[in-house]
Design a protein around this nucleic acid. Structure first.
Lengths: 132, 132
DNA sequence: ATTGACCCTCCAGTTACTGGAAGCCCTACA
DNA sequence: TGTAGGGCTTCCAGTAACTGGAGGGTCAAT
């Protein structure tokens, strides 16, 4: 199978597939013409990667997960640990963003948003009290 | 003022200050010995930048906000627009992350996390049904 | 023979810094 | 006066995960 087919079947862009090969996530063979030659298994792996990436796992997490996926002797606790760590990081990000949202929402509400220069948003960002 | 003092007063690391100069956010003079020479105004600007960055504004947003901050003839609607756009992006990120969290939480709960290889997390990531 | 859709490699750019090497400058202290 | 310590300088490289584009082969059909 050529890269275009694999891309369509897995949903992963050709450029990304080449990149994944470059960093050793997948290892397709080559045809005589130099084209990458993929198998069904590659399609599965790429779909796996696509899904893992969509859940926000880093490439390094993906590498680990893929190895566990292929390891008959894995222990599910290994997978769970990776997922839990990632979940914790996501929760941290959410909290950070929510706190930004709170502040920004307040500021946006306070700002008249008209032709006048006075602006509570700038006033808040500025360490120097503006119109006080 | 040298970069160390400015860093302490503004809370922005020296490396970052140099970077901000490189990309034209601030333009300190130079002393005879080649050291950067900062003023109080630079400290204000850097604190402004630090705060804006903490609220998640991109560097380009910061450039715009800083220009507005210094523009006596600004209209607050210009600032508000930047903030609203940014707020929208934050909300999009939050939603994406929350959806990831939902999925991940479910998967983590379903996974036994023991020494056995069966794992709902991998099963979910995999396009091939595993133990069915 | 040529067109168009593939495929290839390699290079550069993205975001916002951060770390490190090599090397001046300045002050204090023995 | 020599030196030790910080602090300052520049420049280079690396981070994460791709993405775009140039320049150029390959393949199938017309």
């Amino acid at each position: 199978m050529n890269i275009g087919d694999v891309s369509r079947q897995s949903g992963v862009p050709p450029k990304t597939i080449r990149y994944y090969e470059e960093i050793g996530l997948i290892r397709p063979n080559r045809s005589e013409n130099g084209y990458r030659a993929f198998t069904e298994n590659h399609v599965h792996k790429l779909a796996f990667l696509g899904r893992a990436r969509a859940l926000g796992f880093t490439i390094e997490d993906c590498r680990t997960l893929l190895a566990l996926y292929e390891d008959e002797n894995r222990e599910s606790v290994q997978v769970k640990t990776v997922a839990e760590d990632h979940l914790r990081q996501i929760e941290e990000k959410i909290e950070k963003l929510q706190s930004m949202r709170t502040t920004l929402t307040e500021l946006v509400e306070k700002c008249a948003g008209d032709h006048r220069p006075d602006c509570p948003i700038l006033a808040d960002l500025s360490p120097v009290r503006m119109s006080e």
